[in-house]
Design a protein around this nucleic acid. Sequence first.
DNA 1: AATGAATGAGAGTTCATTCAT
DNA 2: CATGAATGAACTCTCATTCAT
Lengths: 237, 237, 237, 237
Amino acid sequence: MSAPRRFLADKLCPVRAKRERRKEARPGELLEAALDLFVEKGFAATRSEEVAARAGVSKGTLFLYFPSKEELFKAVVVENLASLFAGWNQEFEAFEGSTAEMLRYCMRVWWERVASTKASGLTKLMLSEGRNFPELAEFYRKQVVHPGHDLMRRILRRGIDSGEFAPIDVDHAIYAVIAPMLFLMLWKHSVNVCIDGQAELDPETYLSVQTGIVLRGLLAQPGEQTSGKPQRGAPGA
Amino acid sequence: MSAPRRFLADKLCPVRAKRERRKEARPGELLEAALDLFVEKGFAATRSEEVAARAGVSKGTLFLYFPSKEELFKAVVVENLASLFAGWNQEFEAFEGSTAEMLRYCMRVWWERVASTKASGLTKLMLSEGRNFPELAEFYRKQVVHPGHDLMRRILRRGIDSGEFAPIDVDHAIYAVIAPMLFLMLWKHSVNVCIDGQAELDPETYLSVQTGIVLRGLLAQPGEQTSGKPQRGAPGA
Amino acid sequence: MSAPRRFLADKLCPVRAKRERRKEARPGELLEAALDLFVEKGFAATRSEEVAARAGVSKGTLFLYFPSKEELFKAVVVENLASLFAGWNQEFEAFEGSTAEMLRYCMRVWWERVASTKASGLTKLMLSEGRNFPELAEFYRKQVVHPGHDLMRRILRRGIDSGEFAPIDVDHAIYAVIAPMLFLMLWKHSVNVCIDGQAELDPETYLSVQTGIVLRGLLAQPGEQTSGKPQRGAPGA
Amino acid sequence: MSAPRRFLADKLCPVRAKRERRKEARPGELLEAALDLFVEKGFAATRSEEVAARAGVSKGTLFLYFPSKEELFKAVVVENLASLFAGWNQEFEAFEGSTAEMLRYCMRVWWERVASTKASGLTKLMLSEGRNFPELAEFYRKQVVHPGHDLMRRILRRGIDSGEFAPIDVDHAIYAVIAPMLFLMLWKHSVNVCIDGQAELDPETYLSVQTGIVLRGLLAQPGEQTSGKPQRGAPGA
DNA sequence: AATGAATGAGAGTTCATTCAT
DNA sequence: CATGAATGAACTCTCATTCAT
């Protein structure tokens, strides 16, 4: 809302007159306002007019840029989550180093760029309201869940191919990695509602510990035959 | 909806005339319908009329038994969650055995009687919508969160007093125990929305593993000085 | 509700067993409760169930005796107002004395038996809500307004015929007599709502003064030719 | 509805585009429609949608301008009654002449600008329904009754201070002046319901006669000691 | 005769979306 | 482009009346 973020929609704007500048910035301001409010109140409980008001425009203008509240939400998802995968895919394509390092790096990056930001509220939102808005859920799955799983799948496969990881069933192992991430996001956005005091959970420590556990479960253990399933009992798996 | 449950409100009904029979059964039927729908759609998205319809009565009848949608929700919370604590408190008062056993028993019971049932959806609901309905959140905290924390606090204190557990800060350690529970419930009710296939997470195994980890963190370790804080890095803590 | 009033509906009941006694008394109790509530809240705002509750019976019973709320109201009107005219007509038929005395007597009786009791609230109610319930208004006119006007008309005519009163237009003069009565009732039931303190208006003094003024306007004045209209300027006329 | 009245809300509208024009006019149109219907049916019996329909807009539009039916009513009261006092206070502040003249003028003005208009129906409405809507009654008292009484109190005090009026108890004498006004309004709005024909009561004559009577009661009578109370027997006092 | 559970039309209010300006 | 007035379907809750018991 205030920080000088760069929006997808603002990509191609060179230097212009102030007035026009604002015009070009509109979608970004709307997306930012929408993100704030969706995360704060959920999808259904967020009123279009309030989004517009927070972005400093009128109700009509919102619908000028986004044909419906659902489309607005989709745009927020693209802006804050879906669009990240392109860069990540490149990054990991070019990654040099062990897959274990890659996985640690992946989770740290994910924490820094998503989970610790407001964007993680979108995931909580989908978990909360997805069932009531099947089209949004479908969109979210296609734009965020599948790319995320794909990325993770490729990482795991890289590890297996290189002999670093045991030849587990990749499709299931994904969840072992994702579960702690999800938990962190839910904790961040939900638990404060039900627990008065500040819950004591240091996200970075939690994440590093969980990553360690998961990695231990994934790594090929010399002299052991691993099944195609994730280790039963591995936390979050 | 599934099992022949007994509702609080259905105490003393022998055989009676049909009309009266129905009257005795109404609150229970409405509570069951409400539980189903609240869990399925959330509080805001559940329409009173739909609750009534699912219970096989008309709109007006619902308001004959519950003065408002909010009161209906509260009744559902009492019926399915809050009312359980009385029995549990007694049970644990009378428990004989080590506190470690007690804790394991506690978590198993909680899984069987709450988390594995629809009732756990109420917790997910509160996490999702609590912020939008402060009065409900307040009620839920008083009726469910506080009693739950109290119970857990007493268990931990028992362990510390008996020398079984290290002299940790009880108020923080609570979360180490509760976090995996919460996670299981959220997983159960939310993740299926975002992930197409059935995620592979065997709740009972997960729970037993988590309990083991937590217990290891709690137990007094001979020859070691524990601080008043839970072990950093203990999962969920 | 408490006083040992006799209801029309209780007319024909000799001495019976208590149980049956109550049964016979039901309509009366309902009428009394209805009178209270209609006067207190008005017709529309009075809930049938509350009438039943105040009479100590169930909602269903009310509709057993009175087929609808409107019929209940009509019965209340008959019980408390319409039924009075029969006696009054007789009384005034048999009255011996000057018509001026008769008029004074009439107004005192009306005050004592109607205006100073709850029954006057029915008049205020009709003035307030009559337009919203045309059938009730029609009924009230037929049962109360017309008999009242008839009575008054006969009194005036008696005075004119005997030469006591000037040969005024009776149909208009009626209002000169009725206006102060109406005002008293409205004052009694309405003004307390808008004026915090107790308004200082002694009804009996007011009535006697007004009666005096009206009478002075009505009496034949020796040597003067009165038109067929009431004196312009006569209060309330 | 009839005259080309100017509404408070319609202050500064020159010629504008149609849409905007309408917007400026809306509150006034709604207030006028609301006044009509409130006076015709009372507060409770007036449906929001009907107000909107009579103003030529849809249900939703009404709530665009007034957040609730109660607020709409308050606005109607302000528009038609409360807002008048400011001007009157000034007018009477600047009045030159005897207090008796002032009082006559006051009552004539009140008749012309209030009692003879639809606005007087609001007073009748409050008398009828005030008890069922305490918040409205409170508002009406603060906005209309108290300013009215204050104004009247100041007039009476002026008369007493100047020696014109006897040193009566002002707080009680107020009612002697107000009672005939109230009566006229009630007569106007209520009596036609119960009496078929047009009752013959010429308001202006009635008012002038009543004012005369009241004034005679108020004027200081040379050589007589008046008590602090209004004359018992003075009409309406 | 008496009950009170059940009904359902209807009231006030909200809000995503449209469209004239 | 931008506005914001206007819409109307949808939602919660009320209450006179019915009718099985």
